[in-house]
């Protein structure tokens, strides 16, 4: 047998871990009371366990929702379909929502993929970049004539998530160890972010607030936000309504200094 190159050895070892191909075994030394199959199996077992634990840690409520058997089926399907090409385990399960949306039996219950998506967004908000927040004090210092042209920017942790099911309510019920309501079809939009105390927070968005935030994301200024409100509501005091929104965003800590 010619000497195995480092390149081939590594390829064969990865083939063993990922695809169960046992070519590497003939290159492993046999000695002592445990044979080379058992030696290789220690690595295979560690590989599977590490990936499974990563998904368990990232997706605790999803795990409860699925129960042990379905969770196991999901892990084994995902690990096979998406072997890690990431440097960090933190990103290993990034494609899990996509996997769940496209593979049976999970795709028959779209709320499962949505739950996974929600949990990944919580992780993104958790360790997104820090940035100095916009404060009420700062707002007061801005001369009134400049207000119409003000453009607001969001804190890097801010995520907007649209769901088609009662996904977040289901997540919350699981978190509080209650039985969730059955899955219900209903379009809803949520805001997730990391607050001033560095805790991850989320709340639902009304259609009106969602439309304002969408305008802000596309770079519209305060005057344009007011116009949007005017087009929706007829007789109210638009500037007061706009100011209330603005103050709630400032207090939530979702706006930053620029």
């Amino acid at each position: 047998m010619s000497k195995l190159s480092l390149h081939s050895l590594q390829q064969q070892m990865m083939n063993y871990l990922i695809d169960d191909k046992a070519d590497i075994a003939q290159h492993v030394v046999e000695h002592g009371s445990i044979n080379r199959t058992a030696r290789l199996h220690i690595y295979k077992n560690a590989y599977r366990m590490r990936l499974k634990e990563t998904i368990e840690n990232d997706h605790q409520m999803l795990g409860m929702y699925l129960g042990d058997d379905l969770f196991e089926q999901m892990v084994s399907g995902y690990v096979t379909a998406y072997p890690s090409n990431k440097t960090s385990l933190r990103n290993f399960a990034d494609a899990l929502p996509n996997f769940l949306a496209n593979h049976t039996p999970f795709k028959n219950h779209p709320i499962i993929s949505e739950l996974a998506h929600f949990e990944r967004l919580l992780m993104v908000a958790f360790d997104a970049k820090d940035a100095a927040r916009f404060t009420r004090q700062r707002l007061l210092e801005i001369p009134h004539e400049q207000w119409p042209s003000l453009v607001f920017r969001f804190h890097p942790s801010v995520q907007i998530a649209a769901f088609n099911f009662n996904t977040v309510e289901t997540w919350q019920a699981l978190k509080q160890q209650h039985a969730p309501e059955p899955a219900k079809h209903a379009a809803n939009v949520w805001l997730l972010w990391r607050n001033n105390e560095r805790l991850t927070q989320f709340r639902s968005l009304s259609q009106q607030e969602h439309s304002l935030i969408s305008l802000m994301l596309s770079g519209d200024n305060f005057a344009q936000l007011c116009e949007q409100l005017l087009s929706q509501s007829s007789d109210e005091d638009i500037s007061q309504l706009a100011l209330n929104y603005l103050l709630s965003w400032v207090d939530d800590g979702i706006l930053i200094n620029q």
Partner: peptide, 17 residues
């Protein structure tokens, strides 16, 4: 050690020859 090859990661500390 090595941890992966061919753009796949084992996330383990694998021994070298």
């Amino acid at each position: 050690c090595w941890t992966g090859a061919h753009e796949k990661n084992s996330h383990d500390l694998l021994p070298l020859p």
